[in-house]
């Protein structure tokens, strides 16, 4: 019985595997040729790899023992946390109405089109690029980091939430509308219950991602531990670099555990 079903399965996969259409084959070949070409442009050479790996080994040796004693780590990490919290809160608060406006099943075409454009704009630029611009606009410090990550949050939560709203069942909304409920009540009873679970997932992921990014925007002067890390790098203080990186990893891991707990509470 088992063997028979196994045989069936392997026949199917083989047939699938060996009989792609001509177009597909050409696409595969084209992708492969491109990759070889792209690899060539990176300037790989054996000599370079050998040297690089040598440096890498020296790096890793320089990391030990990691240095946690410096008093710069805690304030930097705390500032990263502040940036992550505030940007997640502000970003989500702004993303909710924008996502509702962007949902094509709730809004007229021109409204959703404008809101989608705003979301695309926020999504297109990496937080670090926004951070550079923000640093130029509001100066060095945490504010620039908050602005940068708020932009990213609007883009991320706005996009996913508007897609989640567009996928909800119209039947449930129809039923709530039929009771004579107002628009806001239709949102509260017809839309929110259908997207709440996914929304919590998006926000949890967003906070996680803001936490990781808040440790990075400091490299361009937008506050947080990133600045400390960058300067440690520049003065070749690799023990300190290792200490900071381990702290960041620890922070992100704590965040992931908290995330699981919060999702369970709201399930």
């Amino acid at each position: 019985m088992n063997v028979a079903s196994l045989a069936d399965k392997s026949i199917v996969t083989r047939a699938d595997f060996f009989a792609p259409s001509l177009g597909k084959r050409l696409a595969y070949v084209a992708v492969f040729v491109y990759l070889v070409y792209a690899a060539a442009t990176l300037g790989l050479s054996l000599d370079r790899i050998e040297k690089g790996v040598g440096y890498g080994v020296r790096f890793l040796a320089g990391f030990f023992p990691p240095n946690f004693t410096e008093t710069d780590i805690i304030p930097g990490l705390l500032e990263s946390l502040q940036i992550a919290f505030l940007s997640s809160l502000i970003g989500t608060a702004l993303a909710i109405p924008i996502a509702v406006l962007a949902a094509r099943n709730l809004m007229p075409v021109w409204v959703s089109w404008l809101a989608r454009l705003l979301i695309i704009f926020c999504r297109s630029f990496h937080p670090v690029i926004v951070a550079i611009i923000a640093v130029k606009a509001v100066g060095f410090g945490a504010l620039a980091g908050i602005i940068a990550l708020t932009f990213a949050s609007i883009g991320f939560v706005g996009k996913l939430l508007s897609e989640a709203i567009e996928e909800i069942s119209k039947k449930q909304i129809e039923a709530v509308r039929a009771t004579g409920a107002s628009f806001m009540n239709v949102i509260a009873y017809g839309v929110v219950p259908q997207v709440m679970n996914r929304f919590i997932g998006f926000v949890a992921y967003e906070t996680d991602s803001n936490l990781r990014n808040s440790t990075m925007v400091g490299v361009v002067g937008a506050g947080g531990i990133g600045g400390t890390l960058f300067s440690a790098f520049q003065r070749f203080d690799y023990n300190f670099v290792a200490g900071i990186i381990l702290c960041i990893i620890g922070l992100v891991m704590i965040g992931e555990v908290l995330q699981i707990y919060v999702k369970r509470v709201f399930r």
């Binding site: 442009t41 990176l42 370079r48 690089g52 790096f59 670090v128 990014n213 490299v219 990893i249």
Partner: peptide, 25 residues
């Protein structure tokens, strides 16, 4: 998985620039 994700691209780039020199590699 957690560790590679926690270290942002920019910080990875600092390492690899130090290892292989500036450039797309």
């Amino acid at each position: 998985l957690v560790a590679t994700r926690s270290i942002s691209t920019l910080i990875w780039a600092l390492f690899f620039v130090a290892m292989f020199g500036p450039g797309p590699l």
